[in-house]
Design a protein around this nucleic acid. Structure first.
Lengths: 205, 205
DNA sequence: GGATGTGAATGCATTCACAGCA
DNA sequence: TGCTGTGAATGCATTCACATCC
């Protein structure tokens, strides 16, 4: 079964299912039906079953899905049983908050360094991390096996920073800058624009 | 023309168009074709034209779209020429960073108060804002005209906080907690799960 | 000529509905 | 009986292709 044969919306929902399933594990729930899972995630039971069916038959007819088994299967599909290192560019308030965001570690993402182009910030502490000069980024990435970068710089420098990390070998970019960025097709880009989220929310989406 | 007659994906793209158009205004670009706008936003020219067409005929054949005019029209459709007040619940690193995020103000969102359930945080400063006890939230909302709340609390208390703000009359909730939350149908909910973003990114989405 | 606006065609995800199994 | 798994039907957004207009 090839990942490309699976609808993208389905793949995106996998992490939502996984999050909910881990919650259910905490609550000592052993088994769950597609209907109940759908209710929790505000979707339809048919949707849930179809999504899981793409990856094989996980459920038991008349019973539902075994929570532990399903959790393990999805984690396996998403290759989430490993840890990955991540760098952050931009040591402003947002960058620092992200650098110390506990949930990242829980999901296997380790923030291994934070860089800033502002010379005067070099040496400052972001929680446990020391702010490094961005000029050292390239060398740092040569010595470490890191493919993910978080960009949390102002709009004006976002594209330049993106170009720089891509040039340094980064393959996945998560941008928090409020501009649209272009990267080569070989690089995965995901953009979270916080004010845009508010805008869309208040418009009713 | 009713908003409900317009495809949701189109409506979601409106803010992306708007963001790009404002960038173009800065760059003194007077006019732009659907093809060029599509290239900048990594979509298709047909998509751009169809999106705009839902709201009427904004373009000039043989020329393209007038940037200023289009910007104004979209802002008008999205009712973004007003400012809105927003409260934040959760004065952790993330909540504080959000409270001082400059881009919000640029888009017309004013963070008017930040609350936390931790008594010991009361009175601390988050940039220019004083952290208030969450017990005062209800009263505060009665005295102010506020319909938007940002939730930046740990997973465990997210649902409780959501219930509380909804009960206090909030109509739009932007949650940064890594759990799925349920709200009444009358309330708009949008969820940004930062680790989930990383997860999906590293999985290739 | 050049780019918009738009019906028609296409592609795809969701929903339906039910056979099949515990 | 209860719930999964799945082909078929539906619904909808995207893409195509071209008539239309500056």
């Amino acid at each position: 079964m090839n990942i490309d044969d699976i609808p993208r919306p389905t793949v995106k929902r996998l992490s939502l299912y996984l999050r909910q399933l881990k919650q259910l594990q905490k609550d000592r729930v052993k088994t769950i039906s597609s209907r109940e899972l759908a209710r929790l995630l505000d979707t339809s039971d048919a949707q849930v079953r179809k999504d899981f069916a793409y990856f094989g038959a996980f459920g038991k007819r008349g019973v539902g899905y075994h929570v532990d088994e399903l959790t393990w299967n999805i984690s396996d599909i998403m290759q989430l049983n490993i840890t990955r290192k991540v760098i952050i560019i931009g040591a402003g308030a947002l960058g620092c908050a992200l650098a110390n965001y506990k949930e990242f570690k829980n999901k296997g993402f380790i923030i291994s360094a934070i860089f800033d182009s502002d010379q005067s910030k070099e040496g400052l502490q972001c929680g446990k991390l020391r702010v490094e000069n961005i000029k050292n980024m390239r060398k740092y990435l040569k010595s470490e096996e890191i493919s993910i970068a978080i960009i949390a710089v102002p709009a004006g420098s976002a594209q330049d920073v993106a170009d720089a990390v891509v040039e340094a070998g980064i393959k996945h970019v998560l941008s928090f800058s409020p501009v649209s960025i272009n990267v080569p097709g070989t690089v995965q880009l995901r953009s979270v624009d916080l004010s845009l989220e508010l805008e869309q929310l208040s418009f009713g989406m």
